[in-house]
Design a protein around this nucleic acid. Structure first.
Length: 219
DNA sequence: GCGACAG
DNA sequence: ATCTTGTCGC
C-alpha cells in the first residue's frame, strides 16, 4: 500500500488548520470491494513510548492472519480533537511493516464524528487511501438519544444538525459504541461490519486483539 | 466566562 | 491511555 504523509511536529493550532484542510478530501461514500481482510488498530502507552498494534483478521471467519507492532517516543500530548497527532506517526510505522493489505480498517476512535470531521479513522484512512471506520468507546461530539437495549439497535449521532455517526449496541444491555465513517465507507456499511465483528464482546474482535498487543500482552 | 472533551 | 483491590453478577 502507498502511505502518503505530512509533517507531524505541529503546534496544536497548526494541527487544527491541517485537519480542516484534509477533512475536505475524506470520501463518505462506499468505495470498497469485497472484504476478506479486516484490520484492527490501536495504540498503547508506557514510559513515554507509544506502541501501535495492527492485527489483520480474515472475514467473515475473524481468524488472526497477520499482526505487526511498532514503537516510537511520544511527542504530542493528548488533546481532545487532536488524538491523531499523538497516535498517527506510530500507526503509520506499523502499517508500513504490514505484509498484508487490509480491505477495511477499524479504529479505536472517531471517524468523521469529530469537531472538524477528521477523527483518527478518517485521517489515517485518508493517508493510506484505505476504507476505514471509527469505533469509539465514548463520545467526542454530537448528541443522541439512548439506543434500545438489544444487540444491533442503533440511533443517530447528530452534531449541529448533521448526521456524523450512530450509537450502536454491540451487546444487549451493554454500553454502546460510537460508529462513524472513516474513509471510503458509508455509515450503514460501517455499522454492518462493526456488528459482524462483535462476537461476544462489546468492541470488534479486531480492535480487541490490537488492544491486547498494544498493551504489551500476548495474543 | 463556563462546561465538554476519542485515547 | 495508565495507575489499581476487591467486589458484584451470571
Amino acid at each position: 500500500m502507498r502511505i502518503s504523509s505530512h509533517r507531524w511536529d505541529l503546534s496544536p493550532r497548526e494541527a487544527v488548520a491541517l485537519q480542516k484542510k484534509l477533512a475536505g478530501r475524506v470520501v463518505r461514500e462506499r468505495r470498497l470491494g469485497p472484504v476478506a481482510r479486516v484490520a484492527g488498530i490501536d495504540v498503547g502507552f508506557c514510559d513515554g513510548v507509544a506502541r501501535a498494534a495492527v492485527v489483520v483478521l480474515s472475514y467473515p471467519e475473524l481468524e488472526v492472519i497477520d499482526s505487526v507492532l511498532a514503537t516510537r517516543p511520544v511527542t504530542f500530548p493528548y488533546i481532545p480533537g487532536l488524538l491523531t497527532f499523538r497516535e498517527g506517526p506510530v500507526i503509520l510505522d506499523a502499517m508500513g511493516k504490514l505484509g498484508t493489505v487490509p480491505d477495511l480498517l477499524i479504529f479505536d476512535g472517531q471517524g468523521i464524528a469529530h469537531p472538524r470531521r477528521l477523527g483518527i479513522a478518517s485521517h489515517i484512512g485518508l493517508l493510506l487511501d484505505l476504507p476505514s471506520i471509527g469505533c469509539a468507546k465514548s463520545r467526542l461530539c454530537g448528541r443522541h438519544e439512548e439506543p434500545c437495549l438489544e444487540r444491533g439497535c442503533h440511533i443517530l449521532l447528530i452534531d449541529h444538525g448533521e448526521i456524523i455517526g450512530e450509537v450502536v449496541r454491540t451487546r444487549s444491555r451493554v454500553k454502546p459504541v460510537f460508529v462513524s465513517i472513516g474513509h471510503r465507507v458509508d455509515l450503514s456499511t460501517g455499522i454492518e461490519y462493526v456488528l459482524a465483528c462483535c462476537r461476544g464482546y462489546r468492541l470488534p474482535e479486531t480492535t480487541r486483539w490490537a488492544d491486547r498487543l498494544a498493551a504489551g500482552k500476548r495474543l
